[in-house]
């Protein structure tokens, strides 16, 4: 079921010894909306390296391949074991988690160079760091939670069959990394600029509004299916389907199926989208007749 991951097919045929050092080309950008530029770094190869340890070496070295002083490359990471979703970036043209991008495997494809770019569907904060506020906003929009009465002790939750747990668990592993959105042709970048005299609150409100008009993306659609299948969550299924039929909802999906191909957790996103499509159709018809 779990292949040695779609990323690196040629992992085991390393006939020749890996190089002693390699070049890393990083697409940098100093400020939001600023222009980007490439910077090259030389990194000494070590055992068990991943892209995170490469960026750590670059930060410690703070010198380009040409020996010029530079600032450490900014990037986002936390758990380093592919469960937190922070370190998403485009490595050798492919969106993925930097922590599970192993250097020796990347060097098999190209022994000379590793290329790092920020995701293109989110506004760049700096270098490889992007703002994924829109992604989290989508979870608010679709009400991705179980609306329990409260936190007092009310006994256990509903009985759940092993089969439905086995369906829910993979969907619940979504770590909001954004890979599915980067790969989606219908998900286009929304980047606003705070205007002069605009308060932070007003700017945030304007951003939310713009995000809500944009496509919610595969991750949010899949979360709707997760919560709508839960016995308690199902009680509010209609609200979530409403969100999916509103502007930026499921109708924006072009069925390119790129999302499922890049998901590092192998979440069956297209299955979720298919089910959501049927559920929203039924929901809309039902609402029409219930009027």
């Amino acid at each position: 079921m779990i292949q040695s991951t779609s990323h690196d097919s040629s992992a085991h045929d390393t006939h020749h010894a890996p190089p002693a050092q390699f070049t890393v080309r990083v697409l940098r950008q100093d400020v939001p909306g600023g222009s980007s530029y490439w910077e090259r770094h030389t990194v000494k190869r070590e055992n068990d390296m991943n892209v995170i340890s490469v960026l750590q070496r670059i930060a410690a070295n703070a010198e380009t391949a040409d020996g010029e002083k530079t600032t450490p490359v900014a990037w986002d990471c936390n758990c380093l074991e592919e469960v937190c979703g922070a370190c998403t970036m485009v490595v050798n043209g492919k969106v993925r988690q930097a922590c599970s991008a192993l250097v020796d495997k990347l060097l098999v494809d190209n022994p000379e160079e590793i290329e790092l770019r920020p995701m293109t569907k989110f506004p760049v904060v700096r270098d490889l760091m992007v703002s994924r506020a829109r992604l989290f906003r989508a979870l608010q929009k679709v009400k991705a939670w179980i609306p329990v009465d409260g936190y007092y002790d009310m006994g256990s939750g509903p009985r759940v069959s092993a089969e439905s747990q086995e369906q829910a668990y993979p969907l619940s592993q979504c770590m909001s990394c954004g890979c599915c959105l980067e790969a989606c042709p219908q998900y286009t970048k929304i980047e606003l600029k705070q205007e002069e005299g605009e308060t932070a609150e007003a700017f945030q409100a304007r951003q939310k509004e713009a995000y809500d008009r944009g496509f919610v993306g595969a991750h949010a659609i899949s979360q709707v299916m997760l919560f709508n299948k839960h016995p308690t969550g199902a009680m509010n299924a209609g609200e979530r389907l409403d969100a999916l039929t509103a502007e930026g909802g499921i109708q924006a999906c072009g069925n390119a199926q790129n999302c499922v191909a890049v998901c590092p957790k192998e979440i069956p996103l297209t299955t979720s989208i298919g089910r959501a499509g049927r559920a929203t159709t039924v929901h809309v018809i039902k609402k029409f007749f219930d009027r």
């Binding site: 939670w145 179980i146 329990v148 936190y151 002790d153 009310m154 006994g155 256990s156 939750g157 759940v160 747990q165 829910a168 668990y169 619940s172 919560f227 839960h230 308690t232 969550g233």
Partner: peptide, 9 residues
């Protein structure tokens, strides 16, 4: 029990 009610699979 609480975490179960909150939907933990």
């Amino acid at each position: 029990d609480l975490m179960d009610r909150l939907g933990v699979p």
